[in-house]
C-alpha cells in the first residue's frame, strides 16, 4: 500500500513538473512567427514592432533615446 501511495504522489509530482517545464518553453505565435523584416517606427520606442523578446506588455512611450 505504501508503495502504491508513493507511486501516486510521485506520478502527480512528475506530471506537475512536466507541466511547468513544458509551459515554460511554450511560445506564443507572435514570438515564434516573428521576423525582424519590418520596422515601421523609431526602434527606441519598440512599441510598434513585436520583436522576438516581446513579453506581451507594451512599454511606456518614454522619450526616444538619442543615438
Amino acid at each position: 500500500m505504501k508503495a502504491f501511495i508513493i507511486a501516486l504522489v510521485v506520478a502527480v509530482a512528475i506530471g506537475t513538473l512536466a507541466a511547468m517545464l513544458l509551459n515554460q518553453q511554450q511560445r506564443f505565435a507572435y514570438q515564434a512567427f516573428t521576423t525582424s523584416g519590418t520596422r515601421v517606427s523609431d526602434p527606441a520606442g519598440h512599441s510598434n514592432l513585436v520583436g522576438p523578446h516581446w513579453n506581451g506588455v507594451t512599454p511606456d512611450p518614454e522619450k526616444p533615446s538619442k543615438s
Binding site: 513544458l22 509551459n23 518553453q25 511554450q26 505565435a29
Partner: peptide, 8 residues
C-alpha cells in the same frame, strides 16, 4: 495562439 507543446 501558442506553438510549443500541444498541452497548453
Amino acid at each position: 495562439p501558442k506553438v510549443g507543446n500541444f498541452g497548453s
